[in-house]
Simulated scan of single mutants.
Amino acid sequence: MRARALLPAAVAAALLTVTACGAGSGSESAGPGAGSGATASSATQEPTGSGGSGSGSGSGAAVSEALNFTATTVDGKPFDAKTLAGKPAVLWFWAPWCPKCKAQAAETAKVAAAHQGKVNVVGVAGLDTNTAMKDFVAGTSTGGFPHLSDEKGEVWKRFKVTEQSRYVILDKNGATVFEGVLPAGKGLAEKVAGLSG
Rank of each mutant, 00 (worst) to 15 (best):
G153Y: 00
T176A: 10
K102D: 02
E179K: 14
K152S: 11
G187K: 10
K152F: 04
G174F: 01
E190G: 04
A138E: 06
V177A: 02
V168A: 09
E107H: 15
T140N: 09
Q164E: 14
E163T: 08
G174W: 01
K118Y: 08
K100D: 14
T140M: 09
Q164Y: 12
L182W: 01
D171Y: 07
A132I: 10
G126P: 06
K134F: 02
M133A: 06
H115E: 05
L148W: 11
K134V: 03
N130K: 15
E179F: 13
A175N: 13
G180A: 07
E154K: 10
V137K: 06
A189R: 08
Q116N: 15
G187M: 07
A175K: 15
T176L: 05
V168I: 08
F145Y: 13
A132N: 15
K172Q: 09
A132R: 14
S141P: 11
T162P: 12
G180H: 06
G126H: 09
L182Y: 01
G185M: 06
T162K: 15
A189V: 06
C101M: 07
H115A: 06
A109D: 02
E190R: 07
K157S: 15
F145A: 10
K152L: 12
F159R: 11
V161A: 01
L148S: 12
A138N: 07
Q164I: 11
L148R: 14
V181P: 08
A105S: 09
T140V: 08
T129W: 03
D150E: 05
T162H: 14
T176C: 07
E163L: 04
A125F: 01
T108C: 06
G153R: 02
D135F: 13
D171H: 11
D150N: 05
T108V: 10
L188S: 04
T108I: 07
D128N: 03
G117K: 07
Q164T: 13
K100R: 15
V121H: 07
D150M: 03
R166Y: 13
Q164S: 14
S149V: 00
Q104N: 12
F159M: 12
A109L: 01
H147W: 04
F178A: 08
V181D: 10
R158K: 15
K118I: 11
K100G: 15
D135Y: 13
R158M: 09
N130A: 10
V122D: 10
L127F: 10
G143S: 09
